[in-house]
Computed example of a mutant assay.
Amino acid sequence: MWTPAREAPQGVDVYFSCTHHPDERATRFRHELLVTQDEPAEEQAQRLAAQILADDPRKTAEVCDD
């Protein structure tokens, strides 16, 4: 039986939340990180971690409405 090739993802959605006070409702964020089939997964993971840690990801993330 023939099955179509699975399409590779263009990016990975990373969700995170932030609160400033324990009794405050958390603000949820979504940040898309681009991925490629041409680069080894380990190198991509290191690059993605460095990208997130290099600056406050809230600056470029999308606020998620719940």
Rank of each mutant, 00 (worst) to 15 (best):
L33M: 00
V63H: 06
F16G: 01
A26Q: 08
F29I: 00
L48R: 01
M1I: 13
H21G: 10
L34C: 12
A8M: 05
C64M: 03
L53M: 09
D55K: 14
L33E: 00
E32Y: 08
R28C: 04
P9S: 11
T19Y: 07
A61Y: 01
V12R: 02
D56F: 00
A8N: 05
R47H: 02
D55N: 13
D56R: 01
A26W: 02
F16H: 02
R6L: 15
A49C: 10
P40V: 09
T19R: 15
T60S: 11
Q44N: 11
A61P: 00
V35Y: 05
A50T: 02
R6Y: 14
P9C: 10
T19L: 14
Q46F: 05
Q10C: 07
E43T: 01
E42N: 08
E24W: 04
H20E: 15
A54K: 09
V35C: 12
Y15E: 15
E62T: 13
R28V: 10
H31D: 04
H20W: 09
A54H: 06
V63W: 06
A41D: 11
T3Y: 05
E42F: 12
Q46S: 14
P57C: 12
G11F: 07
F16K: 04
H31V: 11
H21I: 01
D13M: 12
Y15M: 12
M1F: 12
F16W: 09
D65F: 04
R6H: 14
F16Q: 04
E39C: 03
S17F: 11
A26T: 12
H21L: 09
E7Q: 05
A49I: 09
E32K: 06
D65I: 00
W2I: 06
Q46W: 07
T60H: 05
V12K: 00
Y15G: 10
P22A: 01
K59I: 11
R30Y: 10
T27F: 04
D38Y: 07
Q10T: 02
R58G: 03
H31A: 03
S17P: 13
F16S: 01
P22F: 03
A50K: 11
M1N: 14
F29C: 03
R47M: 02
C64G: 06
R30K: 13
P9N: 06
A50G: 05
D13Y: 12
E7W: 03
R58C: 06
R28M: 07
V35K: 08
D13L: 09
A26N: 11
C64P: 15
H31E: 10
G11P: 06
D23N: 09
E24C: 04
A41C: 05
Y15D: 13
T27I: 11
A50H: 02
V63R: 11
F16E: 04
D13F: 13
R6V: 13
P40A: 05
R58F: 07
E39N: 01
G11N: 10
